[in-house]
Amino acid sequence: MYQEKSLNNKWGYILLFLFFLLFIYGDLFPAELITEVIPSLLDMNTIFLSIVLEAIPFVLLGVFVSALIQSFVKEETLERFIPSNPILALFPAVTIGAIFPVCECAIVPIVRRLIQKGMPLHVGIVILVSAPVLNPIVFLSTFYAFQTDLTIAWARMGLAFIVAIIVGGIIYSRFKNSWQLKEPEGLVRKTHEHEHRNKIAETFYHASDEFFDMGKFLIIGALLASMIQTFMDRELLVGVGSGFFTGPAVMMGLAYFLSLCSEADAFVASSFNGLFSSSSILGFLVYGPMTDLKNTILMAAYFRKRFVISFVAIVTVVTYIITILFDLLY
């Protein structure tokens, strides 16, 4: 055992050395070598890194809140705050989502932890879909991005509210309160006492482990999203996107694959204003924060695969129908 350990540590030291080397001399590498082979590769690398860099602080934030919940919130406390009627419980969940300005990267570990602590599945999912879109920061950025058409900002919030409630309802009717997290149920529910350790250190250990558990999914998600952003032909999309039924579908597809942060997506959406109908734009704005490629992969880190697929399907269908209805009624 000792031998294997020292061998592996050797690689750690080599890596450490490499990092320091790159830290000092990294800029000297001739980037032209790469651009000549595949011109867009560096574009992709830049977009990929920018998504990772932008998401890291929020993932860390989410991981810390989650670790704090793990260390300090008792299961009984949680139970007291959630109404026992499953339908009534949906509404405080939306309110929680609306109060806390948590973006979609941070919300996944938090919700997973809350479910571990005994929060009903559908209530957790409602928080998961509502927090990244129904919040004051997102409202303001939408407001600024669409100054000429304020209905967009209000409709975004309204539709997101309706979609979140319906998604919660469907999740409840399909999955009731079954266990959909990857780890076995019994293990988690028991509160364990770390008598010999202090809780702060515990929080940091949890946060660090969770950062690595989740970081790999974040990186895969960012990689896929940056590939699609770099190599996708936008004109093709616009060509099929003008129909009444295809418009929202195309915009939702775009929202899914671009995996933008919910704070920034309104500005991207506004560049499509005038090309797509308001309802298509709303489809983009409501759907994107609730689920996207990066988030699906993040969810797959914690939830069972079948559940993640059903979740994405439910959110997709509900958002689509609601946007079409909005277009018909408005």
């Binding site: 890596l15 490499l18 990092f19 790159l22 830290f23 990294g26 800029d27 590498f29 980037a31 790469i34 011109p39 867009s40 560096l42 574009d43 690398n45 830049t46 977009i47 990929f48 890194l49 990772v52 690595f212 970081g215 790999k216 990186i219 895969i220």
Partner: peptide, 20 residues
């Protein structure tokens, strides 16, 4: 997965998006 972005990041951090 974690090491690759660190390396490409340190190597190509001055790349700027352009006309393509």
């Amino acid at each position: 997965l974690f090491i690759v972005p660190i390396i490409t990041g340190m190597l190509f951090s001055d790349h700027v998006l352009g006309s393509s």
